[in-house]
Simulated assay, not measured.
Amino acid sequence: MWLTHKNQTSEVTFILLGFSEYPDLQGPLFLVFLTIYTITVLGNLGMIAIIRFNPKLHTPMYFFLSHLSLVDFCYSSVVTPKLLENLIVEDRSFSFAGCLSQFFFVCVFVVTETFMLAAMAYDRFVAICNPLLYTVAMSPKLCSLLVAACYSWGLICSLTLTCFLVTLSFRGSKVIHNFVCEHAAIVAASYSDAYINQMIVLVSATFNEISSLVIILTSYMFIFITIMKMPSTGGRHKAFSTCASHLTAITIFHGTILFLYCVPTTKSSWLMVKVASVFYIVVIPMLNPLIYSLRNKDVKETVRKLIGIKL
């Protein structure tokens, strides 16, 4: 039975429709996404290089930021090259193994980013609420453990969801109304009863979203209380400025994820799902390094030094 199921799935082909319903926009969209992906690669790898280059940036906050840049680079690279390929070739087919692999890695990195942002919120909480104990509380060992926990939980969630997807039955060519192999689209293409898969992804997504937001909101509640107790206006401004970039990244990321899960996957909503998917898979990885670099004096100073050395 297992062998029969394996043979069936090996013959399955998914068709990623992407933006094929807009034939006149294929060329312009290719140029737009290629530009975004180029900025994403240069921005995130550049951020990692800058943090490693400048000893002044060897702090817990930048340690987390370097891993956030790595995660952004990875999950954009899992999806965007295939998206670019589908915009210039007529054959939009994707093998079952390729589709499942793409879903697996996207899930790993998205869940990892969810909790990486939560770990960064905790870091800001310790830095502002307990500044004298910051270097002791946020030790290199604890930072490494937090980052390892983020990656590990992302891997566990992704493995669980992917294993349950493998148990579903597929036959022939199945159409996916998106440019990425996301869970709802794969489940919709199956002949099997998808109730268990839908419940597992619902529980997993709800747990990840609520638990990460609880950490973030609790951290920022204490941060806000601490800032309001500061006697000087300058101190308050500096503290708010320290958190501004992180809050911006959190708002964009979680706002998009919540919107995506709130949109029902009906035929009329596929366009909204695609737009939201573009935003959190393609656009957000480009925005994060820009958000953190444009508002950060240390990063801008390091960039100037690097440019000066090259010149």
Rank of each mutant, 00 (worst) to 15 (best):
S269W: 13
P28Y: 11
A148S: 08
S93M: 03
V214M: 07
T266R: 08
V41S: 05
A244C: 11
I39S: 08
F105P: 03
G172Y: 07
I36W: 10
L247S: 10
K297T: 06
L290V: 13
A184K: 02
T160N: 13
S20G: 12
T135Y: 00
L260R: 03
V303D: 11
F53R: 15
L145C: 06
V187M: 07
V106D: 11
R92S: 08
F259I: 15
F73P: 05
P231Y: 02
F73D: 09
R304P: 08
F240T: 06
V203R: 03
A239S: 14
H246Q: 13
F170C: 07
V147M: 04
N178T: 13
T206P: 07
A276I: 04
L294Q: 05
T248N: 12
I216F: 03
H177I: 00
L142I: 01
H246T: 07
S192Q: 06
P131L: 10
V106I: 15
M221V: 11
K229C: 01
S212T: 04
G18R: 02
R92G: 03
R124A: 06
L117W: 01
H237A: 14
T226M: 09
A137D: 06
M230R: 00
S269Q: 15
M272H: 11
T38Y: 11
V136Y: 05
K310M: 14
N54V: 11
F109R: 04
F96E: 05
F222I: 02
C157N: 09
S10W: 00
I15A: 06
T38L: 14
S293P: 04
L16S: 06
L17D: 13
F73M: 09
L133F: 07
A127F: 00
A244E: 09
V278P: 03
T112I: 05
W2Q: 07
H183R: 02
M230A: 01
S95I: 02
K82A: 00
Y220K: 10
L258S: 15
V126D: 00
K297W: 07
T4D: 10
T13V: 11
L217F: 14
P285N: 07
Y151W: 04
Q26V: 12
V111I: 14
S76W: 00
T218E: 04
S93P: 04
